[in-house]
Design a protein around this nucleic acid. Structure first.
Lengths: 174, 174
DNA sequence: AACAAAATAAACAGTCTGTTGATGTTGCGA
DNA sequence: TCGCAACATCAACAGACTGTTTATTTTGTT
């Protein structure tokens, strides 16, 4: 485990980046700027990270880890609804992650960590040709991502239970 | 209409960027580099474009324009299959556009120019609540994009007619 | 062939990167 | 609780790239 000093330093860098991402996209954020905001020496930044993207990755990893811990603690099933509820409780963080990083990439990780992708695939009927089936899976998975994204970026979001219901009903048509 | 000299200059810049994009993502391409590759003075670049993204946009616009002209010339219907055939005939260009620019953004423009988005929505049943319907549309549209993307990036792609058939059959379930 | 439009050239200040070596500062185990 | 290894800072570096300006040369059009 990393010692306290490192953890604090990294935390300050992460918080600085998050603050910056509220006002501009990741591609316009410089290492220089992050360090000024965090009041951390630039040399120190390079000790831990190679670029702002690298730092963002770490933030994403933290989020995924917390998600895992949270679900385990509560002994919750890795159900779609539980994931959506968690996301709903961390809207601000998720919005930053989904708009800054490649959004499909982020949702893919969230879903895959919770084995949701498998679950969605499991709902599909198996009465199709191999090629056709591969495309069906793609369609359903990315269609689901798009629903989550739209919901997450909406200003008057429906409750997570409703979105879970909608997604399940969409996927079950196949 | 722009005179010949300008057209040639812009063309060289576009070709240079395309060549560079075969080896690296747009965010790592500098104006400097484009101009060296194109053997065009950097000052000239700034006369027409503000950034590499700006230039890429112009390339995308050219593609969309050619698509339109092509479909009009052949008096073809703006059908899904015709669009997919056109894409299939310009695989290399499309792959660069889809991987360099935001891929959903690109497909959205292609589809919308051909009024395909409307057509897809038209296939949807109208027996749903307002909210649920909005999400269904999102699901279907982005699901379709994902199929096209997967097909386009595949090494042994199916013929466009088959993909058109698959997409239609997927959308028709709703 | 003349001229206006376009492209080049050289130079500028300025921002950011990535790395170095020397110098402070602090948390943790003995 | 104290010493030292680990960590953070500081200053300075060469170098890449950005945007812009001013003066000069080339070229297409009429």
């Amino acid at each position: 485990m990393e010692n306290q000093r490192i953890r604090v330093t990294k935390k300050m860098l992460k918080e600085a980046l998050v603050r910056l991402l509220e006002n501009k996209p990741i591609e316009k954020v410089s290492v220089y700027e992050i360090c000024q905001t965090a009041e951390i020496n630039r040399t120190t930044f390079y000790k831990y990270y190679g670029s702002p993207y690298d730092l963002l990755n770490d933030i994403q990893a933290d989020f995924l880890h917390e998600l895992e811990v949270n679900l385990q603690e509560k002994e919750q099933l890795y159900s779609l609804q539980n994931i959506l509820t968690y996301i709903d409780n961390h809207r601000d963080a998720c919005r930053i992650l989904i708009t800054s990083a490649d959004s499909d990439g982020f949702l893919e990780k969230v879903f895959s960590q919770a084995s949701l992708t498998n679950q969605l695939e499991g709902l599909l009927a198996s009465t199709q040709s191999e090629a056709s089936r591969r495309y069906t899976t793609e369609f359903v998975v990315y269609g689901s991502y798009s629903v989550v994204r739209k919901w997450l970026l909406s200003d008057q979001p429906e409750p997570p239970e409703e979105i879970a219901r909608i997604i399940i009903s969409l996927v079950q048509r196949f």
